[in-house]
Design a protein around this nucleic acid. Structure first.
Lengths: 228, 228
DNA sequence: CAAATATAATAGTATTACTATCATTTTCAA
DNA sequence: TTGAAAATGATAGTAATACTATTATATTTG
């Protein structure tokens, strides 16, 4: 079983990297190390020099995998969305009602990742933590149009489209399905971040997962109700 | 009239800057120039050296006003929230019903700023454009806790609190007022940005301001309805 | 008008973000 | 198993960034 799972790997757009880090020991150490280091230092404080030191390699070697740290961040986010897609495929299979599928999808997106999977070198707990604080920096740059054209964000877009389709199954007349989904996804990241750092901007309720409850409430009301 | 208006100025937390840029010709040129340059180059491409050149001054002079470009970004966002607060005070005064006040507040937040005011050196159109792409970078850093403690985000928090109060007037039992407001604010930024750069993540509807309509619909349903 | 303050001009440092070259190690195919 | 190809390491170097410091020159203000 473990062996089977170890053969599953998340594919990301080939143009993101110079050399696929998934194909070598150094590449996997590089990615694993970058997750630990970005989580520790933040993306701005993170440099390839520090990464090289932390994995006992050299800057030059890292530059053979990624053009720059921005591309590495895009790689991590693309991997994350690929992984999320994979979790959705498994989690939503054989769930007949679109309502239940949507509920499950929201759960997957809002959950704080608490278990590291055994099938990859990537620590999904730390990666999830990075995504909350850093993922928007992957597209909030002047190179976004070019990078979008090259398909760097296709994983994210595919997920939005998939969930959008579920919403349209529930209510084919709902006009803002993509907006609703991307508002949910980015919102979850922000609210989780706010809970930790800017609690005045959110609502923390003892013993409840307010974020998950809030977004479920919000989405179903948006899709299913007519205003009183 | 012009003279009176020119005496209005937006106050920001004094700890954000080393010397108040609002008190000198150079300081105002610096801020105005930074808005133009960040809009043109993006925050990552923007440097104090380039700013100095563009306003025909020196790096050393700019460093007398701001410790670094991150503090300057915090200044710009704080100014923006102060300005938004000012617009809300005027825009919502004498509006009796909380529903109408909420609708107006959402309009102010979702509107693309199209007119530059005459009472300040700041180009609000460009600043609004910067806010969409760059404002989240002001708090998505490792220094957020310290900076929050020093009150750098109090303008943003005050606005969330103000709108949260309106929501509670409409429905005192609504549990997630702060979350709803910050989801709205950050969401508007993202959706405007997506419309321009990643349209697959949003819904663009010809001849309609889909973003404004979507958020109004979403908020009122969240606050006022019970799920069918 | 003198003193204080602000700005400009200039120079300098440490770090970042790379690129280049060559030696060494590892891989993998015949 | 060996020898070529590929990957990595070691080292060096460049341009730009992110500052700090010093001194000279304007400008403001009391």
């Amino acid at each position: 079983m473990k062996e089977m799972l170890s053969k599953i790997s998340i594919q990301v757009n080939e143009k993101i990297y110079l050399k696929n880090p998934d194909t070598s020991v150094l590449g996997r150490k590089l990615v694993a190390g970058s997750i630990a280091l970005i989580d520790e230092l933040g993306f701005e404080g993170f440099t390839f020099r520090k990464l090289a030191k932390s994995i006992d390699s050299t800057e030059a070697s890292i530059y053979r995998y990624f053009e720059n740290k921005h591309k590495l961040l895009i790689y991590l986010t693309a991997w994350y969305w690929g992984w999320m897609e994979y979790r959705m495929v498994f989690g939503l299979a054989n769930v007949a009602s679109p309502e239940d599928r949507l509920r499950k999808a929201i759960n997957l997106l809002t959950e704080i990742v608490k278990e590291d999977s055994t099938f990859s070198h990537i620590n999904e707990i730390k990666l999830n933590h990075i995504i909350l604080a850093e993922s928007s920096k992957a597209f909030l740059t002047k190179s976004v149009d070019q990078e979008n054209k090259e398909g760097f964000f296709s994983g994210y877009k595919a997920l939005v489209e998939r969930m959008s389709q579920i919403i349209l199954e529930i209510n084919p007349n709902y006009k803002y399905s993509h907006m609703l989904v991307s508002t949910l996804i980015e919102g979850v990241h922000h609210q989780r971040y706010f809970t930790e750092h800017l609690p005045a901007l959110t609502d923390v309720i003892q013993g409840e997962d307010a974020i998950s409850d809030f977004y479920k409430d919000m989405l179903f009301k948006a899709i299913k109700t007519v205003e009183k």
